[in-house]
Design a protein around this nucleic acid. Sequence first.
DNA 1: ATCATTTTGTACCGATCGGTACAAAATGAT
DNA 2: ATCATTTTGTACCGATCGGTACAAAATGAT
Lengths: 188, 188
Amino acid sequence: MSRPPTDRTKTLSILAEIFREYGYDGTSLGLITQATGLGKGSLYHMFPGGKAEMMSAVLTEIDTWFETHIYAPLRSTPQRNDAIPSMLDAVTQYFVSGQRVCLMGVLSVSNQRDQFADAIAHYFSRWIEALTLTLQQHSHPPSQARLLAEETILHIQGAIILSRALHDPALFQRSISRLHDKLSLRSR
Amino acid sequence: MSRPPTDRTKTLSILAEIFREYGYDGTSLGLITQATGLGKGSLYHMFPGGKAEMMSAVLTEIDTWFETHIYAPLRSTPQRNDAIPSMLDAVTQYFVSGQRVCLMGVLSVSNQRDQFADAIAHYFSRWIEALTLTLQQHSHPPSQARLLAEETILHIQGAIILSRALHDPALFQRSISRLHDKLSLRSR
DNA sequence: ATCATTTTGTACCGATCGGTACAAAATGAT
DNA sequence: ATCATTTTGTACCGATCGGTACAAAATGAT
């Protein structure tokens, strides 16, 4: 037994960056060996399923990260009253003001959508559910809370796209600010 | 002289669908010859620059379509008072309730972003400018109009992502409805 | 020190990639 | 009918793709 945990985690985070930057098709094994310093032997030993398994592992890692740092705080009771602002801050930091793309978002409009459909749907639906819960506790009527949660998450996704399209990180910041205002309107 | 105009237009619309479905990397020349029925000889005669020129031509075609069907009506004066609803209808139809992706949006979060940066930025900035003009004429204060225009377009992009991620066309419809309400709030 | 097990680097596989060359075919003006 | 020009289909190019095989090296228990 060696210490694969840290190695694996480190490798996964490198893989995540590569997949984000080059997409699934654009990420070649050559690129991966170069970025990780691991030969194909090591990679296929670690991920026998090849590239598809690497992506799956990355998606699981991302899901876990969001579960811990984003969803869980939203579900906690009693609800901290800065739960929403702190979610928006964490998201802004994670996506580097929209200059780092959301791998789940990218995949959902790619031809790999069906292959990873479960992971993608899981990620977004859990996020929506957790945020819905929070919004209800901030005195948004239940019927509106879910709609507002959906709107919040698509707003974030859209902000990434538009700010990248226009090379304008400030646009991302602006749109997150507006989101902040919108979400806190009825909780005061 | 033959009749390349219709052939070229037809080819471009097939190319657009392929690029939308498979992305830039995922679209192989084999796929293109199969879908268009054109051999490589014909394709490289039509697009000497190869795949990159095909994508550029598609983006130009898309830009022209939006210019004609979306931006121009927004800029026309006097402003029809259903300008915004009719834009949202046109968009909903064009994106088939979010089940058809926005090629410009996809590219802007892909590794081809820089290669096609001009076309992408042009598309979104023209849209924002035209919509800003319309919103101002619907009694939104100028300072707010541009922010609201940005928000509208990122909202549409986000709706495509989220509705595809969740395989839920109804989510797209819902979010467009909300957009409709939001935009008409101050114009009544 | 031995030795079974795990891990790794490298050579190699067939398939496919985007692109080129070019002869054959179609076209259209005369 | 001739013939220059345009258009097309196909064979072929080197490069690279994802993946496999497997011997060599590293590891760790004894």
